[in-house]
Amino acid sequence: MTAALPPAKPRLRLATVWLMGCSGCHMAFLDLDEALVSLADRYDIVHSPVLSDRKVFPEGVDVCLVEGAVSSVDNLAMARRLRLRSRLVVALGDCAVTGNVTALRNQHPDGLAGVLQRCWGQAVPPADSPLPPLLERVLPLHAVIRVDLVLPGCPPEPGCIGRLLASLG
């Protein structure tokens, strides 16, 4: 009688995305330090602003960690794209989960125009602005796409991120 080896689990394709946030959640992810190495046993990092050079969000992602709130037209398009290409979407950190500090601008009584006026001295950005147009209101991720899991914190505890990924893998 020979002991059967457990079947090898398939490796998972991991992406991380940085919407409107401070990158603190990605720093927390990097703060996994040596634990990142053991994660590499289970995950292929296929897209990430801090761990990969790929600019195009790939197809067939298993787990996508999303930092940041949805604040611009680009954020919105990215959120939709990643949702359509990922099996599991995780809102990572308070900005993605609640809007957090990113959404403080929503409190301006004059809305986006008031924010632009306050910051740039003009209520409407110039027509040739290279910056992506901002949405009228900053939204948490689940307000624009379906979100499967949330991991709050500002930033989340690195250990929590590690345990989440370990439990999924």
């Binding site: 809102a91 989960v97 609640t98 959404a103 929503n106 209101r137 948490p140 689940h142 307000a143 949330v150």
Partner: peptide
């Protein structure tokens, strides 16, 4: 998560 829209 908060499932109703934030009013800010």
């Amino acid at each position: 998560r908060v499932t109703v829209p934030y009013r800010h």
